[in-house]
């Protein structure tokens, strides 16, 4: 509380140290493809990101990087229903409604995709990482976080596999 009032920010330490479980996270975020054609993979990556509604913000083909972002709705029926209940109960108790305004409203998802040659020199490794910024009903940033849900990464790679296959088939 004192820190908040004085407006001082203390910089924590240890945030540039790999956390436990980073290797599992790495494998969740990576896939290997049986090709050495990195440019083709990168083109497919851009296609899939566009399929998912992302806008490309940066690319560097020499290093194999594409970064992109997307704005999306973040309203959740369950969260809003719970907040409305809290506000109703609060109003009965004489409080002012606030929980509903704290509900998630919108989000921006940021993605970066990196391709690099596999260790055996015959494959290409693709790694994607996602983050998101969430705004509440008051248009304040309510939280910022790394996205760790495995199914989101799986969905991206399913799309990528399909896209690489389609391009290999020249459709």
């Amino acid at each position: 509380m004192v820190i908040l009032l004085s407006g001082c920010v203390t910089v924590p330490t240890g945030f540039l140290k790999p956390q436990e479980g980073y290797l599992e996270k790495r494998s969740q975020q990576s896939r290997q493809y049986d090709t050495t054609n990195e440019k083709q993979i990168l083109t497919s990556v851009a296609e899939v990101l566009q399929d998912l509604g992302f806008t490309l913000s940066e690319s560097e083909s020499e290093l194999g990087l594409v970064s992109a972002s997307k704005k999306a709705d973040a309203k959740s029926g369950g969260q809003i229903a719970a907040a409305v209940m809290i506000d109703i109960l609060g109003a009965i108790g004489g409080g002012s409604p606030g929980a509903t305004m704290q509900c998630d409203k919108s989000q921006m998802v940021r993605a970066s995709v990196i391709t690099k040659p596999g260790l055996d020199g015959k494959k290409t490794v693709v790694r994607v990482t996602f983050q998101r910024i969430v705004w509440n009903m008051n248009n304040q940033i309510s939280r910022v976080e790394t996205i760790n849900e495995p199914q989101i990464y799986q969905k991206f790679f399913d799309g990528l596999s399909k896209s690489i296959f389609l391009e290999a088939q020249q459709i």
Partner: peptide, 16 residues
């Protein structure tokens, strides 16, 4: 880049 990704960074820009 891969070390930064291990540390939960999203890569915004890179230039060889």
């Amino acid at each position: 880049i891969s070390t930064m990704q291990d540390l939960d960074f999203v890569i915004d820009k890179a230039d060889l």
